[in-house]
């Protein structure tokens, strides 16, 4: 299985809105903690170590 870097989110605008909404009433420390929990939840859902490694590499490429 490979990391999917094609558009895969149904209703992208709605999702983005929901993501920002989740942070709306959080201060910086709470937002950081929220993000960390979210990352862990999503990583666990993926599970596959190769895909996770590819995701970490993709996130590290800032200008890509």
């Amino acid at each position: 299985m490979n990391l999917n870097l094609e558009a895969n989110i149904v209703d992208p605008d709605g999702f983005y809105d929901e993501l920002l909404e989740a942070h709306q009433h959080l201060d910086k420390a709470e937002s950081d903690a929220f993000n960390a929990r979210l990352i862990l939840v999503l990583c666990n859902h993926i599970g596959d170590r190769e895909v996770l490694a590819e995701a970490l590499a993709a996130a590290a490429q800032r200008d890509a």
């Binding site: 950081d32 903690a33 960390a36 929990r37 990352i39 939840v41």
Partner: peptide
């Protein structure tokens, strides 16, 4: 950051 992740693990 590692503190944030550590505590996120414990929270979850």
């Amino acid at each position: 950051t590692s503190q944030i992740f550590r505590n996120a693990v414990l929270d979850l």
